[in-house]
Each structure stands twice: as structure tokens, then as C-alpha cells.
Design a protein around this nucleic acid. Structure first.
Lengths: 341, 341
DNA sequence: TTGTAAGCGTTATCAA
DNA sequence: TTGATAACGCTTACAA
């Protein structure tokens, strides 16, 4: 169907290698033959066959983004959208295609087949799919990859990019303390993932920075028991053990907000609030929530750029990047009359 | 590095073609050589090189999903998440990889290079990137593709999948009318896109179905002028021209809700509400909003399955699929005391 | 500056 | 049931 390099060669009366040379644009070619070849390519509507080039070159010009299927919600919302968008742009800018695949885990799975069958030139992996077997394989094959999110294990020997959750937790609590709140509690569904740990560490260090005693600081872990959590917070407010909360995500904030409304506890009147993850709810809550905004676009961009650099330069030094968060101040953390009274 | 088909052949003492035959599993092979070859493949940790296979076969085992970069918000939220997830699963299930690319439009662009350079076996295109030049090219090259969303043009000659917006509009208005609301207005930022037109058509037909005169039915188009819209609705309620609204999306609902709260117009007390697009806000509004839920997972799944069928069977008959919506009833469309009084 | 020829790893055709 | 051999379209020594 489509014209090949040979057709061009024949038409112009040169050899295929000469045509190949002008396609690749590095070798020395006389100005005349170059233009004649280029004209022929136009005339025959020639486009290099990428399958053949990939085969000949031993490359694919494609990177893969692995997503964590288990984690449909977390990933789909916060990360996925903007990170994927950023990764695609970075890839395209550098002449790479982006392939996306679910990590089906277990048996050989999608990732290992990408590697063994040489379907892509590099990988962006979610921290959740980091396991010894996989990193061993990648190392053995010298396969370039970067991790999206600080991994649970091997974090000292892998390249990864993450949001600076530590700094986010610290910023949030400092803001609340500066507003005049004194008894801030941290609220989260869990405290075992790396990002929860980092946020809690930052939260605690915020108090230290403000020279506030940690004895009475509360960290509430609730699992899926929102009802129980709400009761805890309510009691905390009534007993004056809590005057503000830092929530680990939007959904949690929503539940607390709703619980406080039912209990007639005004926010920010009697309870100040800051939440992690600006998007998508914080702005639209009642009251609008002060939020620790995480720049997932940048996250993806840095991961993709880093990977491509590794592919091209075979960079050796390991790099970890933490992306700063931004505190977006809204009504929920303001200081109101009722509070001081 | 990796073992090739020849290494296996040598090790077992057969020809490369025989090895190839067991890899592909269709040809007739004696049980004995098959097992010996398989053992050798295991021993040498052999994995077929997909670049070479792609090249030899003239296929890529990859489909591309094109996304509309212009439309970051619309696409990123509603569609993207769940559709992409569905498309990836469908692709993987059928042995395809999924490549994602932005439509950079203009000059040659990413789409045409995918086609000309034979980087993928088929395309899923957003309706926004449908233009004559592109469809001509695809037709000329006999390149399989399906469209995500009913296209503005050529809708009669292309394969596409969309949400049944018409039916969604109808369902919503019928629900409100059945609840006892009488003067429902449709609210949208615009009325020119295909999906807005379809929704409006369904909205109007809902009245017809309930034998309600259309003379006093209002369709409010607001652009980005939310303030003006709110005033319109407020006046409509005060003058008893409007007792319910059907909103085209979540953000619009949010603004109206906020406006009504400021104006002390209770929802659903004095104004009933239904919104399109359940996700992500509707559930978390005050009050929770009755929503026309669109199944974008199914949308993606059907698009991908359809494309793969086209690639494999070269199906000829054109198919358009409309995916039914589901009305999720929540507080905002209930009938309350204040209303009947 | 250009041509010749080998090679990338697999599949397909033809013969045996 | 198996083996030789050509072919897929391009790149790249090496030679001229």
C-alpha cells in the first residue's frame, strides 16, 4: 500500500540507504539529492513505517504508564487525571508515545510482558506495584523506570517522584496554629501508607516548630467508620480537646462537615478545618474548605521527563523529587467570633 | 541479550520455523517436539520479541485513544477517568495495548502520524476531532476507528458511541413532573454542542409525553454569566414561572444552589432540582442532588470492543450505540411542604 | 557523498 | 510434521 524507502530510491535513482540517511537527517548528504529525495517523498506521500524502524533500531519510542487497577478510586481521581495528562504531554514533546496499562499483578502480568517482549522503552510505575521480583527483573534487564509516589520498600535505591506530604501536613497545621487554633487533630482513614505517614510526621513537626507540646495532640484513624469518627470529633469539640481538624482527604471532610452541621457545631465557628486534596470537592463545600493543593500535573511531568532522560542518557545517579504543596486558604480555617468567645 | 527463536531452534535441534509454529500454536506439531521446545523456551527464559512480530505481521496489537487536549476539563473529569479505565480493560482482555495521545490538531498532528506510520491498529477518537480531512484519510487508508460521542458532522456515516442524552433529559423532566413540579426550566451554559441539543430535545419531549403545553417552558442559556443566571432563576421562582430546574452539569448546579441559599429560596422547598452528571459533586451537595447518571465506563467499554471487532472481523455495517442513563433520586427533587402551600 | 550488503527476529510459502 | 528460504522496511558498517 504505502510507499517504502525503496520506491523513493527507485524514483530518485539513488540507493535505499541514501533515502534512509535523509530521513534520519544526521549523515552528510549533498543538498541536491536531499531535496530531490524530499520531493519524491512528498509526491509519493511517503511516511516511514514505524514498525520497521522500531525493529531495526531496537527501540519503540514508547513509554508505558502503569496504573494500579485495585486502586480505581484513589488513582482515578487525584493522580490519574492531571498526571496522565502531563505525562502524555511530556512524552509527546519528546517524541514518545504513551502506552497505558493496568497492573494485573500476579502471574507474569502486564508489566513483565512489556519488559520481556520489549514493547516499550521505559516504565512509569505506581508505588503500589513495587515488589522485589519486579525490581529485580528491571535491574537485571537494565530497564529504565521511575516510580510515581514514594514506594513502601526500596525507596532508597529507586528513582521516584512524590508530593511533599510531609511539608503539606506541616504547612496546614502551622496555618491553623497561626490562625489561633490550638488543639488541632489529624484525621485519616489509615496511617500505614507512606503518604499518610509522611503527612502525620509533618503534622507533628508543625507543632514542634511552633513550640507546642505534643502531649495532647490527637491523631484519629477511622477506617470506614465515619459515624464513629464524627462522634469522636464532636465529643472532642464539646470537651474542648479539639478546635480544628486536618483531614486527609475530601470525602472525610465532607462527612465531618455534615456531622458538624447536624450537631449544630459551626465551621469555622467552633471547629476550624483544613483538608488535603483540593480537587474536586473542597471549593464547593459549605463552607469552602482551606486545602492543601497537590500539583499532580507537575508530578506526572517530572516523572515523564525523568524517565525519558534515563532512557536517552542512561543517567546513573538516583533522583528523588518531592513536589511542594500549596495551601489554598478559604473560609473553613478562618477565625470567627464564636471561637474566641 | 535475550534469547531468540534461533537459540531455541539450535538448542532443540529443529528449525526456527518449527519454534515459531509452537509459539503461535496453530500449526500441527508433534507432541514431542512441542514439549521439547517449550522446555527450551523456559530454560533460556525466552520471550518473543514483539517488535519483530509486529514487523513481520504488519500489526501492532495496539489501539490508540485520542483525547482532546483543548477540552481538558470536560474530558478529564467526566469522560476520561472511567472511560479510559474501561477502554484499557477491554483492550487488555483482547490482547491489545492501549496508547493514549493528545490531539494536537493542525499540522499533520499526532493522529495522522499514528495512521501513516502504522503505529497502531485502530483509533478511538473524540467527536471533537472529527473533521473532513481526517475522516477522508481514515477512509482512504481503510483505518478502523470509532468515535467517542456523537459527532457534530458525518454522524450518519461513522461508527460512534454516546450517552443517550435525549433520554436523560426526558427522564429527568418526567421525574420532576411526576413529583408534581409544573414549571421546569432547563439550564445550560450553551445549546450548540450535540449533547446539549439532545438533552434539550429530550427535555422538551418530556413535556409532550406528559401532555403539558410547551408555551411557558423556559430554556436558559447562560454562558459563563452565573450571576445573571442566578438572578434569572430567582426572578423566575418569585414570579412563579419556575418551580424546578434541570441543570446541564454539576458546576451549574452548585452556583444555582449557592444563589438560592443566599436568596433564602429553599431547595427543594421552593425549587426542585435535577442535574446531569452525577459524578463527582452531586452526592455531596446540600441538599444532595438528584442526578442523571451517565455510565462512562460502559461508554468506553463499548467503544473499545467495537473497535477491536472492526479490526479483527473488518465488520462492515455501521453501528451507533446510545447508552441509557440512570436517574439517581436524592433530596433535591423531593416534594416538600413549602411547595404545595 | 553514495552504494552494497548484512542484519534486526519473526512469519509465511513452498517443498519435502 | 518439519525445514529452507524469502520477505517485512529500515539502519548501519564497510567500501568505494
Amino acid at each position: 500500500m504505502g510507499a517504502t524507502i525503496k520506491d523513493i530510491a527507485k524514483m530518485v535513482g539513488v540507493s535505499a540507504s541514501t533515502v534512509s540517511r535523509v530521513i534520519n537527517g544526521n549523515a552528510a548528504i549533498s543538498e541536491e539529492t536531499r531535496t530531490r529525495i524530499q520531493e519524491a517523498m512528498k509526491e509519493l506521500n511517503y511516511h516511514p513505517n514505524s514498525r520497521a524502524r522500531n525493529f531495526a533500531n531496537g527501540i519503540t519510542n514508547t513509554i508505558a504508564l502503569v496504573i494500579d487497577a485495585e486502586d480505581e478510586n484513589t488513582f482515578a481521581n487525584t493522580f490519574f487525571n492531571r498526571s496522565v495528562y502531563a505525562i502524555e504531554r511530556a512524552a509527546q514533546k519528546n517524541g514518545y508515545n504513551l502506552l497505558i496499562t493496568n497492573d494485573m499483578d500476579e502471574k507474569g502480568s502486564s508489566i513483565t510482558s512489556l519488559v520481556y517482549e520489549k514493547k516499550v522503552d521505559g516504565l512509569i510505575l505506581p508505588s503500589s506495584s513495587i515488589r522485589k521480583k519486579l525490581t529485580d527483573l528491571l535491574e537485571k534487564e537494565q530497564f529504565p523506570f521511575v516510580v510515581l509516589g514514594e514506594p513502601e520498600v526500596f525507596s532508597e535505591k529507586l528513582d521516584w517522584v512524590d508530593i511533599n506530604n510531609y511539608e503539606g501536613g506541616k504547612k496546614a497545621v502551622c496555618h491553623l496554629l497561626e490562625q489561633g487554633y490550638k488543639r488541632v487533630a489529624f484525621v485519616s482513614e489509615e496511617d500505614r501508607t507512606v503518604f499518610a505517614k509522611r503527612r502525620i510526621a509533618g503534622f507533628l513537626d508543625g507543632f514542634r516548630e511552633k513550640n507546642i507540646d505534643l502531649d495532647s495532640v490527637e491523631v484519629l484513624i477511622c477506617g470506614q467508620d465515619y459515624r464513629g469518627l464524627i462522634n469522636n470529633v464532636k465529643r472532642g469539640v464539646e470537651e474542648k480537646r479539639i478546635d480544628a481538624v486536618l483531614c486527609s482527604n475530601n470525602i472525610l471532610s465532607y462527612h465531618i462537615l455534615k456531622g458538624m452541621r447536624e450537631a449544630k457545631i459551626p465551621v469555622p465557628g467552633k471547629l476550624g478545618m483544613v483538608t488535603f486534596d483540593n480537587y474536586p470537592l473542597a471549593e464547593y463545600m459549605e463552607p469552602p474548605l482551606t486545602a492543601v493543593d497537590v500539583d499532580t500535573y507537575r508530578l506526572g511531568e517530572i516523572a515523564a521527563d525523568g524517565l525519558i532522560r534515563k532512557i536517552n542518557n542512561r543517567e546513573v545517579e538516583r533522583r528523588n523529587v518531592l513536589i511542594d504543596t500549596e495551601l489554598i486558604k478559604r473560609a473553613s480555617s478562618e477565625r470567627r467570633e464564636e471561637q474566641s468567645g
